[in-house]
Structure formats: structure tokens, C-alpha cells
Nucleic acid binder design. Structure first.
Lengths: 123, 123
DNA sequence: ACAAGTGTACTAATCATAATAATACAGTTA
DNA sequence: TAACTGTATTATTATGATTAGTACACTTGT
């Protein structure tokens, strides 16, 4: 389900874009499946339609969706570029986390331990 | 050297706090060593004294420094609480990065590879 | 043709945060 | 006493996110 977390410091439109991208990549949203309309989702989440529109514009810019004038926004069938971008971002994030941990004096063996746990966590 | 990066999206006062904390934990700043004065550092970095003051207040709140009225701010000799907080944050960040990577379909073996490289990087 | 729905565009107003600016104050030091 | 310390206060500016309201071109179903 598409949702928004107000405790999250990221802008709402960014949360929506990331959220929907994840749902598309996981298959929870199928290729060519139509997203809820801007106005409909705005009512559902009780936020401004312009914020939804901004998120949808971002999704199209990132290659996650395509737009048909007068019809709506749909999940792209080719998500390879979005998937690559996401993986690249995740790898950068991971590398940064490793270097940060090293600077804190965390041993490499400890990181290896943590991977074992974190990688198999449900969530 | 204490510095500020305007390309960084984090607030200046936060950058300063993190920067000085890292210098204290690495030993680049010794226990009981006096930090540059609010006004002096403001001139040096060409930013407002209030921004420095905010960073110094944060550092004291986080247990990195102590303040002597009329004298200045000094590095705390006991940095264990700050070190623990920093390590805890780094571990959380690392765990998040691992789970994000897994969600992107990155194999565990790939992460193990990347640790080998990232952990030994200079920077 | 018509009405209702789609995304998009535009301007304005509001709000929160960061940063600047200019003082002022209490304490310390020489 | 003079010059320095951190701190506090108030006001102002800048920026980004969000809200608000409106308008437009397009598609769909009647």
C-alpha cells in the first residue's frame, strides 16, 4: 500500500517516489499497471494533489513510469534503468557506511557478523 | 582542519559538530584542548558567529566538549559516550544499507567483496 | 457533442528551517 | 579597566516543501 510517514524527514514527494519505485521493482505493482490518479491518491493520503503530481513527475523522469495524456500514469515494463540506478545508489550507500564504520573503529569482523544478521532479517 | 562544504546538504552547524567530533575521536584534537573561539572561527570560515555557537552548543549537548564560562569550549577527556553514540549510529546506518542492498537484489557475496575494498580505502 | 476523468502547468500563499545580522550580558584573564 | 570567552535575544533573509486555486489539453464513455 502506498503510504507516507510524517516522522520521516524526507519530503513527501520523495517518499512517494521511492515507495512506488520499490513496489514496482518488487513486483507488487505490475508492468503497465495504472497508478491511482493524482486527485484520487491525494484524497486517500489527505495531502495536496500537487505533491502527488510532483512525485509522479519524478517517477517518469526516473524511468519508473510512463504517462499517457488523458489516461494516467503506468508502471514501465522495462525497469532496468531504474533498477540499475537503485542498485548503484545502494552500493554507494553501503560503501559509505563501511567507511563510516571503519572511522568509528568498528572492526571488519564485526561488519561481517552484522551482514550475516541484517541480510536475513525479515522486514 | 575544521572546514565546511557548501555542496553538502546538511546544515553548516551539523557539519561542524560532526567534523569536530570526528577530530576529537581520532585524536586530532586532544583532551582539554581549547577550540577556536566562536568569533575567531566565524572569521576564519567566513560564516556567522551564531552558526558556530549553535554547533558548539550541540557539541556540549552531545558530550563532546565542556564549556568554561568566560574561557571557552574544550574537548572532553571522556569521549566514551560520544564514541558509543557514533558507533551505534554507524551500525544502524550499516544495517540499513545492508537491507537496502538486499532489497535491490544485491547478493551477499557482492557485499562481502565490497567490504574488502571499502574498508581498506585511504580517504 | 458532452461530461467526467486523466496529467500537467502556473501563480500565490503558507510554513519550517537554516543562516545572517546586530546587540547585549555575565564571566574570565591580563 | 580592557579585551576576550560563550550565551541569549530579536529581527531579517533565503530556501525548500507544501498547500491552494485555477486553467489547459487530452481521453473515455455516454
Amino acid at each position: 500500500m502506498i503510504s507516507v510517514d510524517y516522522k520521516d524527514k524526507r519530503p513527501i514527494y520523495e517518499q512517494l517516489a521511492v515507495n512506488i519505485t520499490a513496489m514496482a521493482l518488487s513486483g507488487e505493482l505490475k508492468p503497465d499497471e495504472q497508478l491511482p490518479s493524482v486527485r484520487q491518491l491525494a484524497v486517500q493520503l489527505k495531502i495536496n494533489p500537487n505533491t502527488i503530481a510532483k512525485a509522479y513527475a519524478e517517477l517518469e523522469r526516473r524511468g519508473v513510469t510512463y504517462t499517457v495524456a488523458g489516461k494516467g500514469s503506468f508502471i514501465n515494463s522495462d525497469l532496468s534503468s531504474a533498477a540499475k540506478a537503485q542498485q548503484s545508489a545502494a552500493e554507494n550507500n553501503f560503501t559509505e557506511a563501511v567507511m563510516q564504520a571503519r572511522l568509528c573503529g568498528i572492526e571488519k569482523s564485526r561488519l561481517l557478523e552484522m551482514i550475516g544478521e541484517a541480510y536475513d532479517t525479515d522486514k
